[in-house]
């Protein structure tokens, strides 16, 4: 069962997590387990709104329970660093409805 889509390859990399309530948290993946519980270091939340630019909320060291995780994206630092978050406007994502 080791050939599955584990998160091994993302450890120590910057990832972008979408939670079931539609939030977006960016941080460095430090650990994970079978249930997709994850440890994120130096994390921050990106709050999207249509009225102002993206707010960056510093969170620090976070453990996120797997049940609340929708998607984990591998963040390419280079294009991401070129984004001007202050100019971005977007509707927040919808929550997951099970």
């Amino acid at each position: 069962m080791s050939a599955g889509p584990g998160l091994e390859s993302l450890v120590d990399q910057t990832i972008s997590v979408i939670t079931n309530d539609g939030r977006n948290i960016v941080g460095i993946l430090k650990g994970f387990d079978q249930a997709t519980n994850i440890i994120l270091d130096e994390s921050h939340e990106r709050v999207f709104s249509t009225k102002e630019g993206v707010q960056r909320l510093v969170l620090g060291l976070y453990i996120i329970r797997g049940d609340n995780i929708s998607v984990v994206g591998e963040l390419d630092e280079d294009p991401d660093s070129r984004l001007d978050l202050s100019k971005l406007r977007a509707h927040p994502l919808k929550p997951v409805i099970h």
Binding site: S16, I69, S70, V71, G73, E74, L75, P79, D80, L83
Partner: peptide
């Protein structure tokens, strides 16, 4: 909103 290429690979939890 054009989306760029910041994320090329992603993990999707089966439950969602």
């Amino acid at each position: 909103l054009q989306f760029g290429l910041s994320v090329r690979n992603c993990f999707i939890r089966g439950s969602v």
